[in-house]
Amino acid sequence: MKLRRRETVSLQLVTALGAAALLFPFLWMISASLQTLQEVEAFPPIWIPEVPQWTNYIEAVVNYNIGRALLNSAVVTTVSVVGQLIVCSLGAYAFSRLRFPGRDAIFLLFLATMMIPHYVTIIPLYTMVWSAGLIDTYTALIFPGLFSPFGTFLLRQFFNQIPISLDEATLIDGGNHWHIYLYVIMPLSRAGLGALGIFSFLGIWNTLFWPVLVINSKELFTLPLALAMAQGQFVTLIHVQMAGSVIACVPVIVVFLMLQKQFISSIALSGMKQ
């Protein structure tokens, strides 16, 4: 589809304006994180601080205990994502490839529960966590999230598209079902696994509700929780809060920029597969 030159130029302009509008809050956040309190309050707003206040970042790191929170988030997210990929791919493999009595009944039951929002199950889950004495543990953060129904469903759809003739070939070559899973299904589903991985990464890295419930001690705060608690507990000032927010954004942005293609296809894939 060819566009005329003038059209192209105006579209280009619109796109750039839109991008500028979206970047605007980001830029303000970064700018405010480097200002003094007087500068943040000034009218008209100051965009370039006279002397960049790097101490705001130090203050944020100290106030929010950011180092520890980063570590916690990294541990919880990594273990959750890897665990979820293993558990869900095994489940999806069974649903997609292996026939055993009860399979379809289980699948139906599973489909029936998929629409039920997380918030319905949160109170019983929370009850289980404290009854089992798991409040304030990594386990409480990680375990209930490993068995993602969505993940299993997504991967099953993926596995279904891999030709079954490949399985048969493996079996004929003397392989068993584990070989099919390890050497046929998994390598051919990299896109699906990547999609699920990134999808869960974003979800787990950013989530607030569950950590608020099951975590009490500062030493186990995840990044969103550390930010939210600092915001609610002792009022810190604009510029320091913005420094904290910038720090919280950096890891996701870095990962995003590194794996951009996978991010995009993750959203597109999880969006397209039905």
Binding site: G18, A19, L22, L23, P25, F26, W28, M29, L202, W205, N206, L208, L223, P224, L227, A228, Q231, Q241, M242, G244, S245, V246, A248, C249, V252, I253, F256, F263, I264
Partner: peptide
């Protein structure tokens, strides 16, 4: 740029 706002933590977005 258009996709960036959708990936950063909602807590940070809210504070901003």
């Amino acid at each position: 740029i258009y996709y960036l706002p959708a990936v950063i933590p909602l807590v940070a977005v809210s504070m901003m």
